[in-house]
Design a protein around this nucleic acid. Structure first.
Length: 587
RNA sequence: GCACCCGUAGCUCAGCUGGAUAGAGUGUCGCCCUCCGAAGGCGAAGGUCGCAGGUUCGAAUCCUGCCGGGUGCGCCA
């Protein structure tokens, strides 16, 4: 179904058109001044500016036409030419009734027939996930849920970091440690054991050791570079060892993502496009797009009008290794070939903006992206309460696993303080705490605007008061509880309609859900979902405070109000689901 | 040095394709539970929207300069 605002815009647009003005001036949106009206149209001001006419006079003409429309209960002109509009309650009620039977709750269907590839998560092989991966994972997951809700075909790809210098660092470290000499024996070409010579715990020790050694010693770094080149060139022992690294790491990562409730369609990585790289390089060289510069093969991407230096995208390093820019470019080719998407989103830390600009420009120069628009969906840093990047108390990198555990512990503490679930089983209490802990983290992260840094304050985010994940879960549980009671009492659930100011307000917000989803998609802005969910909970509380539903003596009115409660619950649960937040049965 | 992002209430943040009295949470101070879960609702106080110019009938929003903070700038990811 088309959104209410869209329908009103169409009606107003026709009024402008009938006056010989552009239809686009008819854009109607929720009013900035809810005390004055439900909706507003500011088109008369813009039209007057364009036509050098009197805005008030234009507004008068439009108002005359709009007053003839039965959908409006009020059409007023205010100030220099604002059109303030209220709807007839009958129209609102009809819309609410239609919404109550709409499984999609007014989702806009903006993605019908379109495919989007979303690249997020981006964990690295051999490294445990840390808080740096948190934002990519939960923002990316929210976007994939949102795009699906809006009708897109979504292909999500975790895009493992499994092919760069860090792999060479690890391989050379294993060689130095001497823990698996067979993989380095030039006289052995396999077959190799199916069992990994290293565990995830080993890798977590080996990688930082290798990384530090390479930083300290140029010769050690050189060995890592050589190992990288050999791995990428296909040396059998290195490939076998590397496959163990990947497999071992994936098992750990799957657990981490499961704990977060994040799923991917593809578990591809940088290495997945290995075979595509040589033909891509040949093609780019043949077409004169790639050239040798300072010993490396590069694609120049600088443009005349650049205001800043724009280094070329390096495809092959002087010693022969490929970089993540190379795999990113080849991955564009792969995704276009496999899915022909209209959009590819990269949910990656905003510090990598320059990298993506290079890749996107190179893709454009090579005409590699088909019809796809490539877009870097950047995000800011998660900081500690000191305003600096989030660290453990000891000053180290906080693992994601530990952060989730902290949030769950905090949730348990809060639930205990509130006496929630005192009579539930230990298992159920634990499960509730898990859901609340995840909600704490996700809502805190997603409610901040994506591009800005934010301060992670567990103390504040885990509160049940205010704009928090736990509060919204509680609000949803409360409505569930009421509907359960209604069912026990045998009360029938009817069709929502307007009988009071509180219901009117609630229904108006419910009818704007589709517009919010479209806007959130357009801006790739999860915080709009958070804002909506919180406002919905607030509007419900006002309604709930004012009208005692279950004790309402008029059965028809009670049924209508229960219908409204059911609709609110459906909308709230759905938006929370898009945020990746689960609502417990009870709490 | 150059480029990008940010500077909004005591604190944490929305709002930014220009529009009416700049919003929310939190904190502070008042009210409101014989009734569906008060983890709530209603109200008050709190702002030169970093500073200075400019465009406009109209600027938190667009442009320029400055100050303050963050980030990035060729073989890491």
């Amino acid at each position: 179904m088309t959104s209410l605002a869209a329908e009103l815009s169409r009606i107003a647009g026709e009024a402008f058109a009938a006056e010989g003005l552009a239809e686009s001036f008819g854009r109607v949106a929720a009013s900035d001044r809810p005390d004055l009206a439900q909706f507003q149209c500011n088109g008369a001001l813009a039209a007057a500016k364009a036509a050098k006419a009197n805005p008030r006079a234009i507004a008068e003409k439009i108002a005359v036409r709009l007053k003839a429309e039965p959908i409006f209960a009020k059409v007023e002109i205010a100030g220099p030419g604002f059109l303030n509009l209220n709807l007839a309650d009958a129209a609102l009620s009809a819309r609410a009734a239609a919404l109550a039977t709409d499984d999609t709750l007014g989702a806009p269907g903006t993605g019908t027939g379109k495919t989007v590839v979303i690249d997020f998560g981006g964990p690295n092989v051999a490294k445990p996930m840390h808080v740096g991966h948190l934002r990519s994972s939960i923002i990316g997951d929210c976007l994939q849920r949102l795009y699906r809700a809006n009708g897109w075909k979504v292909v999500s790809d975790v895009h493992l970091g499994d092919w760069g210098l860090q792999m060479g660092q690890l391989i050379s470290e294993v060689e130095i440690e001497g823990v698996a000499p067979v993989y380095f024996d030039p006289n052995v070409v396999g077959p190799y054991s199916d069992d990994s010579p290293v565990s995830m715990d080993d890798l977590e020790i080996l990688y930082p050791r290798a990384s530090a050694a390479c930083k300290a010693d140029p010769a050690r770094l050189e060995a890592a570079r050589r190992a990288t080149v050999d791995l990428q060139a296909g040396r059998a022992g290195y490939r076998a060892l590397w496959r163990h690294f990947v497999k071992v790491s994936e098992r750990g990562l799957e657990r981490e993502f499961a704990a977060l409730g994040v799923k991917f369609d593809l578990w591809n990585g940088e290495s997945s496009v290995d075979a595509l790289i040589p033909p891509m390089l040949d093609d780019l060289k043949t077409r004169g797009l790639a050239e040798i510069s300072e010993g490396a093969l590069v694609v120049p991407v600088a443009r005349e009008d650049d205001k800043k230096p724009m280094p070329p995208l390096i495809l092959v390093k002087s010693e022969g290794g490929v970089l993540y820019g190379t795999t990113d470019l080849a991955t564009v080719i792969e995704r276009v070939r496999n899915y022909d998407p209209t959009l590819i989103l990269y949910v990656v830390d905003h510090r990598q903006h320059g990298h993506f600009e290079q890749v996107f420009r190179a893709a454009a120069r090579g005409d590699l992206s088909g019809k796809a628009q490539l877009e870097h969906v950047g995000y800011g840093t998660m900081n500690g309460t000191d305003g600096k990047p989030f660290k453990t108390r000891a000053g180290g990198v906080m693992k994601l696993h530990d952060l989730i555990a902290m949030a769950k512990t905090e949730a348990e503490k809060r639930l205990g303080e509130q006496g929630i679930g005192a009579d539930f089983s230990a298992e159920e209490r634990s499960e509730i705490a898990r859901k609340v802990g995840i909600a704490t983290i996700k809502f805190a992260d997603l409610s901040n605007h994506r591009t800005t840094d934010y301060i992670f304050d567990l103390e504040r985010f885990s509160k049940f008061e205010g704009k928090t994940g736990p509060y919204l879960q509680y609000a949803a549980v409360r409505v569930q509880s009421m509907l359960r009671k209604a069912k026990e009492q045998g009360a029938s659930i009817g069709i929502p309609s307007v009988h009071s100011a509180e219901e009117r307000r609630l229904i108006l917000q419910l009818l704007s859900l589709g517009d919010m989803l479209a806007a959130a998609e357009d801006k790739r802005a999860p915080n709009m979902l958070c804002e909506y969910a919180f406002e919905l909970a607030q509007n419900f509380s006002r309604f709930y405070n004012e009208h005692h539903v279950l004790s309402e003596p008029d059965p028809a009115l009670r049924a209508a109000r229960l219908g409204l409660c059911a609709l609110v619950l459906a909308a709230l649960t759905w938006v929370l689901d898009l945020l990746g937040i689960e609502v417990p049965e009870r709490m």
